[in-house]
Every structure is written in structure tokens, then in C-alpha cells.
Write a protein that binds this DNA or RNA. Structure first.
Length: 271
DNA sequence: AGGCGTACCTGAGGGC
DNA sequence: TGCCCTCAGGTACGCC
């Protein structure tokens, strides 16, 4: 499932592929996959727009348009944004097609139909509820200590809360906790300052390494060119229950926390 | 407000 | 082999 490194990889790829292209026509196959401001028709509004920039906020891909509007895409679990240079059959499960004037095309595909493409008015505060960017200069160890203090939730649940830190999902939460030697169930407020510092370092480190490897492809994820990432070969714990911990050799376990699979080492993660 | 449960979906994989 | 059942999980939303 696309998390920060995967979304960042897609956004970077799209930057070279779609900036400067003008939409000839947008076609919506499944209505619920799109959201537009009241009184605005999604496809009609897109026609004639050119894409001027591509960015990322949390797990959202943000494309800037000439009108000042933005096209914000949430891939959720199985969503894909795949660019096609020439006319051919759309990517499987394509629900929104954005055809450009030069016959290239951007497909928004999603087998489970959880993803959303949203047209946002200039200045509309669509990301108000999103927390801090973990790779920004604002995410300091000191800030992290402050964020966690007094919070009774298990630290892993905290990491997954997009209102606190934006972009971390199940894979990188599990990986960072392992790297920092912290038990996923430990209450946020019970973490010592050294443990929080280790977790801070681990988060930044694992996200950066994953971006370098162009993301993790455990199942569906591909980048804007349809290529898989490489970080699935670097995973230490995610999806590896029963396999030996690469640090201590003990079999890794899978438990469930907040309705989500959680992979960890009962020996190495004891703080 | 914060925290929790649930709906949304369908492909994959296990059991028999 | 093939059918049936369950599971996976990010986010929005409703409720207490």
C-alpha cells in the first residue's frame, strides 16, 4: 500500500511526465472515485487545464493546475496513477482517464475502488487535518518528544495517525519500531527520551532509504511508469512472521494492534 | 476533543 | 480442480 516513500516516488516520476501537458478530456468511469467543489463538474472543469506542478503532502499526490485549482489524489490501498506515453488500452481497473492533448494519458486505476481524486479550489484548506511532514526540518526530536508526551495510545497507533505525522503507514511504522528496538504496544507517554530519539532517527532513516529504493512493492504498488519499487527486499519485519529476526535470530511474530497486522521481534523490541 | 468501531471494496489465498 | 470463506487495511464518518 502506498505510503510516504511510494507516494513521493510517484510524485517525482509524474513531475517529469505531466508538467506542461494540457488536458484535452477527462473521463470518469466510476463516479464515486472523484470529488469536486459544489456546483463544479469534475471532468468538465479539468478540460483545458494544464499541469504546472506535482507535489506530495502526506500520502496525497497534489497536481497544480493553471487555474490555481489542485488535483489531489489519495491512492488508499490499491490505487495507482500510471502515465501512458501513447494511446493504448488503459491500465487495468482504470476509473478515471485524463487524456492530454498530445495523446498521452494519465490513468487513475484502483481494483478496490478506495482511492479518490479530488479537485480543490485555490486556497481551499484541504490538508488542514494532516500532521507534520516527517522529512521536514520541523520534525525535530524535541518536537517529537512533545508530541508523544501524555499520549496513552500505543506508539504504533500514534505513528499511523495522519493527524499527528503525515505519511507513515503500516509498513514503515513496523520497520521503524524494529529499528529503534521499541515494542509496538508501548504507550507513547511511557517512552524514554533516548527511545524517542532512536525512533525519530529510525523513522527518518527508513523513509529516506525507502525513497532511495523507489518504495516498497509488497503487492500492488507501482510508480508512475508502472515500475515496482525495491524496498520490499530490505524489509526487516513487515510480513516476515516466522522468519528469523536479522538482528537476533529469534522468529518474528505477528500480532494485531488497532485492527492491523503488526510484525515485530519479541527479543529486540523490548522498550 | 479524543478515541473507538465500522463501512467501504475485491483479489488472494487457505481449507476441504 | 474448484468452490467458499476470510482476510487485508487507509480513511471518512458516526458515536460516546
Amino acid at each position: 500500500m502506498p505510503e510516504l516513500p511510494e507516494v513521493e516516488t510517484i510524485a517525482r516520476g509524474l513531475r517529469d511526465l505531466v508538467i506542461g501537458r494540457t488536458v484535452r478530456r477527462a473521463r470518469v468511469g466510476l463516479r464515486k472515485m472523484t470529488v469536486a467543489p459544489a456546483g463544479v463538474n469534475f471532468s468538465r472543469a479539468l478540460a483545458g487545464e494544464a499541469i504546472t506542478g506535482v507535489g506530495r503532502r502526506g500520502k496525497y499526490i497534489v497536481m497544480q493546475l493553471t487555474s490555481g485549482r489542485s488535483l489531489v489524489t489519495s491512492l488508499r490501498m490499491t490505487g495507482r496513477l500510471v502515465f501512458q506515453r501513447t494511446a493504448r488500452s488503459p491500465h487495468p481497473y482504470t476509473h478515471v482517464r485524463i487524456d492530454f492533448e498530445d495523446d498521452s494519458r494519465l490513468c487513475f486505476a484502483d481494483s478496490r475502488q478506495f482511492g479518490r481524486m479530488r479537485l480543490v479550489e485555490p486556497g481551499e484548506p484541504w490538508a488542514e487535518a494532516l500532521g507534520i511532514e516527517p522529512l521536514s526540518e520541523h520534525f525535530t526530536p524535541q518536537r517529537f518528544i512533545g508530541m508523544l508526551s501524555g499520549r496513552r495510545v500505543p506508539v504504533k497507533v500514534f505513528l499511523l495517525d495522519q493527524r499527528r505525522i503525515a505519511g507513515i503507514g503500516n509498513i514503515y511504522a513496523c520497520e521503524a519500531l524494529w529499528e529503534a528496538g521499541i515494542r509496538p504496544t508501548t504507550q507513547a507517554k511511557a517512552l524514554t527520551k533516548p527511545a524517542i530519539r532512536r525512533l525519530h532517527t529510525a523513522l527518518v532513516d527508513v523513509l529516506n532509504r525507502a525513497i532511495e529504493m523507489r518504495g516498497t512493492s509488497v503487492d500492488d504498488y507501482v510508480d508512475a511508469d508502472g515500475l515496482r519499487g525495491g524496498f520490499q527486499n530490505e524489509l526487516s519485519v513487515y510480513g516476515r512472521h516466522g522468519k528469523a529476526c536479522v538482528r537476533c535470530g529469534r522468529p518474528l511474530v505477528r500480532t494485531v494492534l488497532a485492527q492491523r497486522g503488526t510484525w515485530w521481534c519479541t527479543r529486540c523490541q523490548h522498550k
